[in-house]
Write a protein that binds this DNA or RNA. Structure first.
Length: 105
DNA sequence: ATTTTGACACTCT
DNA sequence: CAGAGTGCCAAAA
């Protein structure tokens, strides 16, 4: 029988997708949200990622917002991305047009 | 129960 | 892209 997706399932879904983002690419909260079937709830993805360290190590630094802006209060993110070859157009925006991850590449 | 807050997105300007 | 305005949803106050 069908039951509503609960937080733990959600966390699993989000993190398993984040884990699939290849080195050198970035995804967005909205993209992940759409992939888990909640296109309207990108904020939920951000909430999960904010607690992701508790569940293990995931490449959560490869998730940015729709304009390419990196997460506030996550100072290591820029360095981690640059180490993977991501180009920045300014202090806190990656070149998302160039690096956005498309499923199936 | 109502308001505020936050790792967001979309549409215009 | 930057800013402002509006929509969204869940957790915290």
């Amino acid at each position: 029988m069908h039951r509503k997706v609960m937080d733990e399932d959600l966390i699993y879904l989000v993190l398993s997708l984040v884990e699939e983002i290849p080195i050198g690419f970035v995804s967005t909260y909205g993209q992940i949200a759409a992939l888990i079937g909640n296109p309207k709830n990108a904020r939920l993805v951000g909430r999960v990622l904010s607690m992701s360290e508790y569940f293990g190590k995931y490449p959560c630094h490869r998730v940015v917002d729709h304009s390419g802006r990196i997460a506030p209060h996550f100072k290591n993110q820029k360095l981690l991305l640059q180490e993977e070859g991501i180009h920045f157009i300014n202090e806190n925006h990656v070149d998302i047009k160039r690096h956005k991850w498309k499923i199936g590449e």
